[in-house]
Design a protein around this nucleic acid. Structure first.
Lengths: 146, 146
DNA sequence: TTTACTGCAAAGGGTTTGCATGAGG
DNA sequence: CCTCATGCAAACCCTTTGCAGTAAA
């Protein structure tokens, strides 16, 4: 079971052994609606609806969901970002505007890569993290500050 | 010009517009001899030779070298790691022992991946960051604590 | 009712910054 | 000599931890 737009978030959480609190449902919604947000970005968004929400709670929830396999973790330079797409995939990261979009049209190439690692040096493949940096077709300002 | 075992580090630094101080040469040596070290690991090693060395100096040097294209930056979960191999390549990261080894036997596959990104959505490729997680042939204890 | 989650505050750790001193070219 | 690098300390920011109160199941 995965979380995605259209699925029942409460059910997904409970199947993973997590309680479906209103705060958590809001966190799930923001992760789905936003573009690979950081914990801080989720916090800012959810706080509009739940002013008493604590940043620690956001971290606890996102980390819990990652441990249960509901989210992918993307360590980028400045902070950790979370992705509801738990399928192995590459990310296209724009150097101009900082956008991160999933690049799904390369499953066959990634499959080759995995096979190659098993063949070379007896490496038992488990997971991958693939970021491709460049400039996207329509970079929105502002250019990234980092 | 790249830094690698056998090349003249002082010359590489000066060609990049950096001064070749004894501290910097020691930092370069540690980056070459160690396995994708963090700034802290470089600091601990260089401090044996230069007891007055400051951690801030190590960060300044490594960041400067990264900006000049002498080092690759690897943001991993816990800290940033530095790599003297500036050729595009994949990293094999062992979940058991934390070792990071360059995986060079996949240049053709990575080339395919780059072409594919240009074809898809007009993304202008610039750089890549590819980590493959799994278990290496001979994991040395201890298993990673994180 | 029981267990897990929330909220809050404080601490932790990697990284950056500021500035005076000192050394490289 | 002038510029850049060093060394030291403090600040920064993301993230984690601890604990008492609260809500989910």
């Amino acid at each position: 079971m995965v979380i995605r737009t259209g699925s029942d978030p409460a059910r997904v959480l409970r199947e993973a052994g997590l309680r479906a609190t209103p705060q958590r449902l809001a966190i799930v919604r923001e992760v789905l609606e936003r573009n690979h947000p950081t914990a801080g970005e989720v916090f800012e968004a959810v706080r509009l609806e739940f002013p008493t929400m604590g940043l620690g709670t956001v971290y606890a929830t996102l980390n819990m969901m990652s441990e249960r396999g509901l989210l992918n973790v993307l360590p980028v330079s400045d902070a950790v970002r979370f992705d509801a797409n738990i399928q192995p995939h590459a990310n296209l990261i724009c150097n101009q505007c900082g956008s991160i979009v999933d690049f799904d049209d390369c499953d066959d190439v990634l499959a080759q890569l995995r096979e190659r690692t098993s063949a070379g040096a007896g490496f038992a493949f488990a997971a991958e993290h693939i970021d491709l940096y460049g400039t996207c077709a329509r970079p929105r300002r502002p250019p990234r500050t980092s």
